[in-house]
């Protein structure tokens, strides 16, 4: 998901940079005030850890392999402020040492993976984990949050590419979102297993007092929230505005088909899905997204059950 240089135009570069720098500024400001001396090497090592975790490859289909992004992992382990800083340093090193991701696209890459992925993932994790306050609940929350954060980051990525005028919504959005709905499953699986491994071997590391201030103040929530919403407005809303047209077309087609051919009253859901899927991939992607989210959410429960079995 690292955008190289040459893809984004000036306005996108400026917009993403402003959003990233302001979010990073808040996280640094807060950390500087609150960080204890012993947590500085801790955050540095955690950043190196995320970097190395990203280097470990997981075999997928055929000869291909993937790796995790780790933004939710970092946020869950060390809190959202530290996670933003950690993900940013990871991306900076990848850019200046590995030439992975562009220099001027750094703002966009930090926004997608370091800020949106972290903040949205973390808030989903926090609210779900509060609903189900058990270890198993935490795993469910982590799995679902990882998936959502990966998918949302990819949608932002698509939005930036579209805004730069190098691809159309109809292509970029389904391509990025659909692929990352699958990749997100991997992210969810790995993040959850990693968390379970830590939970089982060194539970004291997950103790509240150990980590770098997990909670956000209400002021931070407002500012971070504003940054996320600004991002959504700029990069995702153009698509939303196109949505009614798309839906109308789909509805029209379904209706038209039913009337014309006289299909049964209850057509199989698959047929319903296939039809718009063929004509308007972007709308289909949204449907797939909702279905995917439900499936992943259910799957998270199974995964949590599998990782922390009932004690006999």
């Amino acid at each position: 998901m690292h955008i190289p240089d040459g893809f984004l135009d000036t306005k996108t570069i400026v917009a993403t940079s402003i959003l990233s720098v302001s979010a990073l500024g808040i996280s640094l400001h807060r950390l500087k005030k609150q960080i204890l001396p012993h947590q500085i090497p801790l955050v540095g090592l955690a950043a190196a850890f995320v970097f190395v975790a990203q280097m470990l490859n997981f075999p997928v289909i055929g000869g291909t392999s993937g790796h995790i992004i780790g933004s939710v992992l970092a946020a869950v382990l060390l809190g959202p402020n530290a996670a933003i800083l950690i993900m940013t340093t990871v991306l900076v090193v990848q850019c200046f040492l590995f030439a992975d991701g562009g220099v001027l696209s750094l703002g966009a890459n930090i926004l997608n993976m370091g800020i949106i992925g972290t903040l949205v993932g973390y808030s989903i994790y926090r609210s779900l984990a509060r609903l189900i306050p058990t270890d198993r609940g935490r795993l469910v929350a982590i799995a679902f949050a990882s998936w959502c954060s990966t998918v949302l980051a990819s949608i932002f990525c698509a939005g930036e590419l579209v805004w730069s005028g190098i691809a159309s919504w109809q292509i970029a959005f389904p391509a990025m979102a659909n692929i990352h709905m699958l990749i997100g499953i991997g992210e969810a699986l790995i993040t959850t297993i990693v968390f379970t491994a830590i939970l089982k071997t060194k539970p004291e590391f997950l103790h509240q007092s150990f980590t770098v201030n997990l909670s956000l103040t209400s002021r931070e929530i407002i500012i971070y929230g504003a940054i996320v919403i600004m991002g959504l407005l700029i990069f995702v809303s153009p698509f939303i505005s196109e949505l009614p047209d798309g839906l109308e077309t789909v509805a029209h087609q379904i209706g038209f088909d039913r009337n014309a051919v006289g299909q049964p009253l209850f057509p199989s859901p698959l047929a319903d899905y296939q039809l718009p899927g063929m004509s308007i991939p972007a709308v289909a992607t949204i449907f797939v997204g909702f279905i995917g989210a439900v499936i992943v959410f259910g799957g998270s429960f199974l995964l949590a059950r599998f990782l922390i079995p009932n004690k006999k």
Binding site: P37, H38, I40, P41, L42, G44, L45, A46, A48, F49, V52, A53, L56, N57, F58, I68, L77, L189, I190, I193, V194, F195, T196, A197, I198, T201, K202, F205
Partner: peptide
Amino acid sequence: RAMMIGQIFIRSIERADRIY
């Protein structure tokens, strides 16, 4: 691999302590 990532995390935290 996932367990390994967990291990690396634990080791990094312990190392951070020694570095401190």
